[in-house]
Design a protein around this nucleic acid. Structure first.
Lengths: 269, 269
DNA sequence: CGCGGTGTTGAAAATTGTCAATAATTGTGG
DNA sequence: CCACAATTATTGACAATTTTCAACACCGCG
């Protein structure tokens, strides 16, 4: 199983700068291991954990990794590519919950009921590690570090969503867009890619859905940012010219909601 | 430790209908056990789990169970009362992330970094079970059902937050308020309290902060709902007159975002 | 009885959504 | 490789929603 390579790409795609398309197969040799599931595991523990990773899976662009209603059996680590998780609302609309790039884990929805609650779809051809949850849980039994890692990863997911709630609950659209750009920039940066120049893999509609605003508003704000000299935009190519300006925009342009909570916050005895 | 009772309530408060103020102390005899941590555990497993529950804690109204930055050491099960979790945004504002009532668990933020990321504050005098996380993790080692329960609870939290993201991302304010009222109603209902008549424990500002709208908008929409005959409002006393009307409002009044994601969603090979 | 916090209501301003037209880009098939 | 179709993105004008600002009522409490 080692060193296999996907010789044929069904859809040739432009490779994002610095992002390699071929990859190693063991976690130990994976360049993403410091961000991914095995973080903080010793090599021996990692080996134990890895036995639960049975398969890799390739998801072509537009294909679903899983759909809402599918049985929850595995979580997935993104090796290469770019995915999005979306829910279908009762009103027949759909809402983007987030984007996953290489090194991200996805699939924790459905941990409760055993059925996935959202779709995860590839925005470009992607490769994921399939991590059967049952196997992982068993591996965790014997491996203290892994046992601690799983709730930690879930905690990360909870915090990520709380950050999104904060964005949707307090920011106006320009601050939301700035947050989005900074988030993408930061995440690419931690992966060794450029923080200032990147290609968006999603449509304006996807961005708007994530941020709770319309396509038109996304477009207008991007254009405004460009006019202000904060960024340079060419379609989906983004060049961040003034990171600080975007940061300031996030901080300052929150909607001022008065008296959000008048808590005395007395120290407990 | 059994059958202790808090003889003195520092702040006498009106007891919510059907909600008793005295309580039993073991999980086995707790009326909330079907909703709480011990759900799905056998009595023996429950006993093992319970050994990790060392203390109870009483939080007076306005006091904090914990603050952002506090070390994450325990999670908490609400026995009696009503709490809210809030974050302080970078802009100096605060945002309500949610409300916790009897039977809810709180404290999962900070699982990642070891530091809590939000404050949890009592909106009325409350009692919580303190569940040291380390002890719980150890108990889980020996108890398969408990071991599965923890990620399940985290998954519940993730899904709850995803539902909030959906509300904030797709709904207009009237649909948000309707969602909120229905959520409170449902949660009280599952606790054996009235689904149609209840007392809100939080201010309009708290509701607005949760829903990402202003106090004034909350107030206006509540008034409008009352005029339409969907609810009856008297300060914080709410009487839901037409549950279906509120439900319809949630479903129909989502902002129509066109082409939120044109995913072909081809079946994977 | 007054006071601080809370809740309601009105009017005006700001933000954002809606509709529509058009341009740019991408994918498809000859 | 080109042309055509479909999708995606931009922009403008207008409408709707929501916020902001302001005034005032209410309520519990010292």
């Amino acid at each position: 199983m080692n060193c296999e390579a996907y010789a044929v790409r069904q859809r040739p795609m432009r490779v994002q700068r610095g992002q390699s398309t071929d990859f190693e197969v063991t976690c130990a040799r994976c360049s993403l291991k410091s961000k991914c599931l095995p973080a903080a595991l010793t090599p021996a523990e990692l080996d134990a954990a890895e036995r639960s990773v049975l398969t890799r899976r390739r998801i072509g662009r537009g294909e679903a990794l899983y759909r809402a209603g599918d049985a929850f059996e595995s979580i997935y680590a993104v090796r290469v590519g770019f995915l999005t998780s979306i829910v279908n609302t009762s009103g027949g609309h759909t809402q983007v919950l987030g984007f996953q790039m290489a090194g991200d884990l996805v699939g924790f929805d459905g941990l409760d009921t055993g059925l996935h609650t959202c779709d995860v779809v590839a925005l470009e051809d992607s490769d994921v590690c399939v991590i059967p949850y049952r196997g992982l849980a068993e591996a965790a039994t014997a491996t203290p570090a892994l046992r601690a890692r799983i709730p930690q990863l879930l905690g990360q997911e909870i915090e990520r969503e709380q950050a999104m709630l904060q964005i949707l609950g307090t920011m106006r659209s320009d601050a939301r867009v700035a947050s989005f750009l900074l988030d993408i920039s930061r995440r690419l940066g931690t992966r060794g890619l450029s923080r200032s120049e990147f290609v968006l893999k999603m449509t304006r509609g996807d961005i708007g859905s994530l941020l709770g605003i319309t396509i038109e508003t996304v477009s207008r704000i991007m254009t405004r940012f460009a006019r202000l000299g904060h960024i340079h935009i060419d379609g989906r190519n983004v060049h961040i010219l003034d990171l600080d300006a975007l940061t300031r925009m996030v901080a300052s342009r929150a909607t001022a909601r008065r008296a959000p909570l008048t808590v005395v916050v007395k120290q407990a005895a």
